[in-house]
């Protein structure tokens, strides 16, 4: 019994240490500015305040960035998951020339570094007159999100028994009918987890946003918030921590309600870092 308690205390102290930076982020965001510079620092805030959140929403362009990120990530997710779902169906359940090498290519691009593609992509999008638009970012995000989504969905698809589709065909469905009636409902959990991962990847992306967008109209959260750090003369840590918390809100929602889908995604094909 004693050993069990000791082990639990040990385990939880490690867990809390790992989680401490996040706890500190939360605490800092609700401390008044003057309390930050107190010595010794207060672990829990003496006075709670949401002034930084108000300031973030009213005085800065945070909401604009947030909105850009929502549009950008949602569009990327819808486009990528739609293409990848039919693509994965084709890769797993059809036979044609070049199918194997295509699957190989998907894996290859899944591992490809962004910095290799970013230079020509930059040139291409500038020439197309798309720089500084959300569209340019959707196109750029496809480069990492599509191989990733394909790879995940391919393994989810392979997990659906082929007999189900065969049965539907014998029962009178066409290939696409069987896909719609039988495969899609079975694939739904996989689609949800792929969509979540794609959304999170897009939400967190930094490099493409940094290179391709240089105007507040299209700037997403990652570069937007970073700009707030760089451009301010006097760094307001509470404000930045409030921004960090707000930026993590979608993630917290996913964690609270849809965590099983994230774990499923891990099982299906590893996760992009």
């Amino acid at each position: 019994m004693l050993r069990k308690i000791a082990f639990n205390l040990f385990a939880w102290s490690i867990v809390l240490m790992v989680a401490f930076p996040l706890f500190w982020m939360l605490v800092t965001s609700v401390k008044p500015q003057f309390e930050l510079f107190r010595r010794p620092p207060t672990i829990l805030p003496e006075t709670w305040t949401f002034e930084h959140y108000w300031k973030l929403l009213s005085d800065t362009n945070f909401l604009g960035y947030f909105w850009n990120s929502v549009i950008l990530s949602t569009t990327t997710t819808i486009v990528v998951v739609a293409i990848a779902t039919v693509g994965a169906y084709s890769l797993v359940r059809f036979r044609y020339k070049g199918r194997e090498s295509l699957a190989f290519l998907v894996l290859f691009t899944y591992l490809l570094p962004s910095v290799v593609l970013i230079l020509p992509l930059y040139l291409m999008l500038v020439q197309l007159g798309l720089s500084n638009t959300i569209t340019s970012l959707v196109i750029a995000y496809t480069t990492f999100a599509l191989p990733y989504a394909l790879w995940l969905l391919r393994s989810f698809m392979a997990g659906i028994p082929e007999d189900l589709e065969s049965a539907a065909l014998v029962d009178g469905a066409s290939r696409l009918g069987a896909f719609w009636d039988i495969i899609l409902p079975q694939l739904l959990p996989g689609i949800i987890s792929t969509a979540l991962f794609t959304f999170i990847l897009s939400w967190n992306e930094y490099l493409y946003a940094l290179v391709l967008v240089n105007s507040d109209d299209a700037r997403p959260l990652t570069t937007g918030v970073m700009n707030m750090l760089i451009s301010s003369f006097n760094i307001e840590w509470s404000l930045l921590m409030a921004a960090s918390v707000m930026m993590s809100v979608p993630l917290i929602i996913v964690f609270a309600f849809l965590q099983s889908y994230l774990t499923r995604g891990f099982g299906a094909g590893g996760v992009k870092g």
Binding site: M25, Y206, L221, L229, L240, M241, S244
Partner: peptide
């Protein structure tokens, strides 16, 4: 405990960096 451990992986690198920069701050 698992959620807490998992969280750093899913937050944006921007958030992680801001938090750590604040933790690393030389004065405060």
């Amino acid at each position: 405990a698992r959620s807490l451990i998992l969280f750093p992986y899913f937050i944006s690198t921007v958030v992680a960096v801001l938090v750590w920069k604040w933790l690393f701050n030389d004065l405060y």
